[in-house]
Simulated assay, not measured.
Amino acid sequence: MGSSGEPMVYMKVMEVHGEKIVAICDEELLGKKFVEGELVLHINEEFYRGQLVPLSYAMQRAWEATILNLVGENTVNAAIKEGLIHPDAVIRIAGVPHAQAVRMLY
């Protein structure tokens, strides 16, 4: 938790082939791997470790993304509240919520 009691998240912003990819995960999930049957969710440090920021700041930056990759209760719930992700787009692997979104910008 940040000084204001707000959850902290790891956020990485990447520009790849004209896309702006924003990856956000709950702080405590970084580097962990979750397995459920055939499904594996690896919160890879190389992909997710960027800045450790307050959740509200990460949600502001998420609006800039053409591709969003989100993991964790705090992150996914905030994205749903913001209207970035539809609740039906969330999958859970070993209980951990994960969502991806692609936005077409014209």
Rank of each mutant, 00 (worst) to 15 (best):
V13S: 02
P54L: 07
E46I: 13
H86R: 14
S56C: 01
E82L: 05
N74L: 01
H98E: 13
V22R: 01
V35T: 08
L29S: 05
E28R: 06
E73D: 14
L39I: 06
S56D: 10
A101W: 14
A23D: 02
G83Y: 09
V90W: 08
I80T: 12
N77K: 15
V96M: 00
N77A: 14
F34I: 05
K20T: 13
D26V: 02
G31I: 07
I93Y: 03
P87V: 09
Q51A: 12
V13I: 09
L39N: 14
P97E: 08
L30D: 08
K33M: 09
N69Y: 05
Y106C: 06
A94Q: 12
I24H: 07
S4Q: 15
L41E: 09
E19C: 00
P7R: 04
K32T: 04
E36Y: 06
R61C: 04
N69C: 12
G72L: 14
L68R: 05
A94W: 06
A94I: 02
N77R: 15
H86A: 14
E38Q: 13
I21A: 02
H98L: 12
V76A: 14
R49A: 09
V9A: 02
V16C: 01
E28Q: 04
E19N: 13
M14D: 13
L30M: 02
E36P: 03
E38M: 11
L84Y: 10
H42N: 09
L30E: 05
V96Y: 03
E38R: 11
A89K: 06
I80C: 11
P97W: 01
H98T: 11
V40G: 00
E46T: 13
E82R: 08
K81Y: 02
T75C: 05
I91W: 00
T66C: 08
E45Q: 14
L39Q: 10
V96E: 04
R92G: 00
E15R: 10
V40K: 02
I24R: 01
R49G: 00
E46H: 05
D88I: 15
P7Y: 01
Y57W: 11
P97K: 07
F47I: 13
N77S: 15
F47T: 11
E73Y: 05
H86N: 14
P87Q: 09
M11K: 08
L105V: 10
A99G: 09
S56I: 02
L41H: 05
M11L: 15
Y48D: 02
E36M: 00
G5Y: 05
M14K: 15
A94P: 01
L70W: 07
A62T: 06
A99N: 14
A58N: 09
P87E: 14
T66L: 06
K12V: 00
L52S: 07
P97Q: 08
V40T: 13
Y106W: 07
L70T: 06
M1K: 10
V102A: 13
A65R: 02
M14I: 13
R92Q: 11
V71M: 02
T66N: 11
L70F: 08
E64N: 08
G31Y: 10
Y10N: 13
P54T: 12
E27L: 01
S56M: 06
V16D: 11
I21V: 15
N44Q: 10
I85V: 15
Y106R: 12
V90E: 07
E64G: 04
V71Y: 04
R92E: 10
P7V: 03
L30F: 02
A89M: 09
I67S: 07
